[in-house]
Design a protein around this nucleic acid. Structure first.
Length: 758
RNA sequence: GAGUCUAUAGCUCAGUUGGUUAGAGCGCUUCGUUGACAUCGAAGAGGUCAGAGGUUCGAGUCCUCUUAGACUCACCA
């Protein structure tokens, strides 16, 4: 053996594991019955974005590897199923940045071309991602790898959409949505970051009263003034109409209990198309909706000519200038408030009314809340149970449509002849962008030309649609059908990931794959807590809705890796530590160990090179202890080398170390069952280094061959206990010992977990 | 506005159901190691466990409050 451990054989060892089939569990012929007896163990990998190179967050999948390696050694049929996500908006955003660098934008391409370009872009990185996970030693079953845009997976997701529709849980509506005019799509509430903004409160004279507002520019779309009925100042005005400045349109004064008399002037301008609260008021009072900001972020519609085409901040200035000129600004106060920003590009979110696809969430949420309450899904650490339930209880209908290209399109078709009010944006034969209603285009452009160059369409909320694909409109028999250009929210697809990857068949559950029968529900979902709502909640809802059973029995939330300053690692901050650089420098085992050593459950932690180096030393210690055992045996040159311990001949040192070994086996087993990885790794470190090396091995230096069985027993048992954490070095040593001393040939990866029998 | 978490050695952090002199890594001091490991060993310095009060035979650990910080959720003008 070499003088120091040199992790140069990792790839070979990984290949040995792969070739042995250890990562690929076999499913018996009668999976449903066998399952009860076999107690299979399964984890679905939180699918990384296929376009995303590895970062420390991915390296934390080590936790899952520890779990599956441990349970595999316990003898359970064990599956760790990897995958890759197309990651809708994330990927499109990255790709658009790339386009931007090349001086292009998404508007230069029709959607088919754009889709193809992004597809190729992702394919380049997808392989890299898999390669990197192998480098980290993850014992995933690559024969069951899935990519979220695989045809069968998409097919199943579309089937789920159809089922939801049939069950009356899908509808279109034109509500206020969180719209990012830069990204060109709506977002769910979860995708909006609230940031504190220092702004102003403008007091604007509206005829007989004054309103206070943070968004003067939206006044062009006001359709009412709201006051509290208890407010004596405005009592007489309720029901009257007043003239809206600048646009000279009459709007009513309405009575609304929710208005705070103390705030501002107690009179609120109501802009139903650009404010969520005002939207609700408008629904209640049956007010008019006047949208002034269009989906491109400009004031294109329903505004006086002079304001046309302005962006909101320009519009604000123009409106304030004109109000000032007309002496209609009473005063301006400083004001700090929370404003929603796009979580992707960071720009302010524009609340806009837009037709979108929704899923009614109550029917899905209720069983999910119950499952959490009844511990059908358990949470580690348990405190996340409470926030999960609270969030589920306050959940709103889910906007599942995104106005992006990258992802499966919603399988709904519109008849252009029945719905001439559909607005189409497309590139014509000459690659010119045309943007008009179908009523204006009919006769000038063929449907074929429109389809070929199509970028997006916006169908009025009243438009009829067909969910099953056909050639002809069932009403008018026209063949001018066009598919909805909205794509699914990424989480709509990934929310079904455990079902899709295990081969659940939504259309006919009885045709689901044996994998599904055997491994569903999966055992553990280990993920970062920040996607608890995005993903874990959605998976649970879909699982229960489609199968009646939860997708995983336990949710284990792990910690976030930060840099030395405690900041989240991100590319934009430039503080990303590449795990592959670390494995190259110190070996994979050292990195893995440093990611779990002494970490409290679900608390953020710092990964520093110091720490990795310390664990590299530990890995080397394992190596050298083994090397010493070998050298000692060579020196003693015994007639027979065996692991059989003769209990009658044990010295005090022997008894002590065996006693400690029994204890560490028991505590390791117990703590692994309770997800206490930090504790286990520390205990093993102390046991191996202090108890075994510094004490027992030191004492063995003065002894004869009777010490060999104990030495070898403690060593090989330690290798087993350590294997889930540091798989490469332990396997390499184990193979070496087997070879040299002619022990029973087996791979450590599929060896039996020790029991405290010594 | 609602909720969650954190505060322990110079630094980064462990410390499950409350139980003997509070631990690790890194750093620091002294010494040792020419045959496992300079990626090593031995010994040591260093902490009134944020502050105050309470429960208890006993509190770093449970409860209340205070202070400082982090985060999540949220449609208030």
């Amino acid at each position: 053996m070499d003088k120091a451990y040199n992790p140069t054989n990792e790839d070979q060892i990984y290949k040995k594991w792969l070739d042995s089939g250890a990562f690929t569990p076999k499913v018996p012929k009668n999976p449903k019955e066998a399952k009860l007896k076999d107690n299979p163990y399964s984890i679905i990998l939180p699918l990384p974005n296929a376009n995303d190179p590895m970062h420390m967050g991915h390296a934390l999948f080590t936790i899952q590897d520890i779990l599956v390696r441990y349970h595999r050694m316990l003898g359970q049929p064990t599956l760790w199923l990897p995958g890759g996500d197309h990651a809708g908006i994330e990927t499109q955003f990255v790709f658009e940045k790339k386009l931007q660098k090349e001086g292009k934008s998404r508007f230069d391409f029709d959607r088919k071309t754009l889709y193809k370009m992004i597809w190729d872009f992702v394919e380049e990185n997808r392989k890299l991602n898999q390669f990197q996970m192998k480098k980290l030693g993850f014992s995933m079953d690559w024969t069951r790898y899935h990519y979220s845009l695989e045809e069968p997976i998409v097919k199943n997701v579309l089937a789920t959409f159809k089922k939801l529709y049939k069950d009356g849980l899908v509808y279109r509506d034109e509500k206020i949505v969180n719209y990012c005019t830069h990204c060109g799509t709506a977002f769910s509430n979860l995708e909006v970051d609230h940031k504190t903004v220092n702004s102003h409160l403008w007091y604007i004279k509206y005829g007989p009263l004054t309103v206070a507002t943070t968004r003067p520019e939206t006044m062009l779309g006001d359709t009412a003034i709201a006051v509290n009925p208890k407010d004596k100042r405005y009592k007489d005005l309720i029901g009257k109409k007043i003239l809206l400045p600048l646009v000279n349109r009459e709007i009513p004064v309405i009575s609304e209990d929710s208005i705070d008399i103390e705030f501002g002037t107690g009179a609120v301008k109501v802009t139903p198309s650009h404010s969520p609260e005002d939207y609700d008021m408008a629904k209640k009072h049956n007010l008019e909706f006047i949208r002034i900001i269009d989906f491109d972020g400009r004031a294109n519609i329903n505004v006086p000519e002079k304001y046309r085409g302005l962006f909101p901040n320009q519009l604000r200035q123009a409106v304030i200038d004109d109000l000032t000129a007309a002496n209609l600004i009473e005063k301006i106060e400083d004001y700090t408030h929370e404003v929603g920003h796009c979580y992707r590009c960071g720009r302010p979110i524009e609340p806009i009314t837009a037709p979108q696809w929704y899923v009614k969430i109550d029917a899905l949420a209720k069983p999910t809340i119950k499952a959490a309450q009844d511990n059908q899904v358990k949470f580690f650490p348990t405190r996340f149970k409470k926030s999960f339930i609270t969030w589920m209880e306050n959940i709103r209908d889910w906007n599942i449509s995104r106005q992006i290209v990258w992802g499966p399109q919603i399988p709904a078709w519109y008849c252009l002849d029945c719905n001439p009010g559909i607005k189409l944006n497309f590139l014509d034969k000459n690659k010119q962008v045309i943007s008009a209603f179908y009523s204006e285009l009919k006769g000038k452009y063929s449907v074929e030309e429109i389809k070929n160059g199509l970028q997006t369409l916006v169908a009025p909320v009243t438009a009829d649609f067909i969910i099953d694909e056909t050639d002809h409109c069932p009403k008018c028999k026209s063949a001018s059908l066009i598919q909805e250009t909205d794509t699914f929210d990424t989480w709509f697809l990934s929310g079904q990931w455990p079902l899709s990857t295990l081969g659940f068949n939504t259309e006919d559950p009885s045709k689901s794959s044996p994998d599904f029968d055997y491994f569903y529900p999966t055992t553990v979902m280990d993920t970062l807590w920040d996607i608890l709502f995005f993903w874990v909640a959605r998976m649970t809802m879909f699982g229960l809705y489609l199968t009646g059973d939860v997708p995983f029995k336990t949710v284990h939330l792990h910690s976030k890796v930060t840099d030395a300053k405690g900041q989240k690692m991100s590319k934009s901050k430039g503080n990303v530590v590449n795990p592959l650089d670390m494995t190259e420098k110190y070996g994979t085992d050292a990195l893995r160990m440093s990611l779990v050593y002494g970490i409290a459950p679900a608390s953020d932690f710092v990964v520093s090179e110091d720490k990795i180096r310390a664990q590299r030393n530990f890995v080397n210690k394992i190596w050298n202890a083994s090397r010493f055992v070998e050298m000692l045996i060579d020196r003693l040159n015994p007639s027979k080398i065996s692991l059989d311990i003769d209990k009658s001949k044990l010295t005090k040192a022997d008894k002590d170390i065996l006693d400690k070994l029994n204890k560490i086996i028991a505590s390791t087993t117990k703590n692994l069952n309770n997800y206490r990885f930090g504790q286990v790794s520390e205990d093993l470190y102390q046991f191996f280094w202090k108890d075994f090396c510094d004490v027992y091995i030191e004492s063995a230096k003065d002894r004869g061959e009777e010490t060999i069985p104990v030495l070898l027993t403690v060593l090989t048992t330690s290798l087993k206990l350590l294997h889930p954490f540091v798989p490469f070095v332990t396997e390499e040593i184990y193979q070496y010992l087997i070879e040299k001393y002619n022990f029973k040939h087996e791979l450590l990866v599929s060896s039996k977990w020790p029991t405290n029998e010594f």
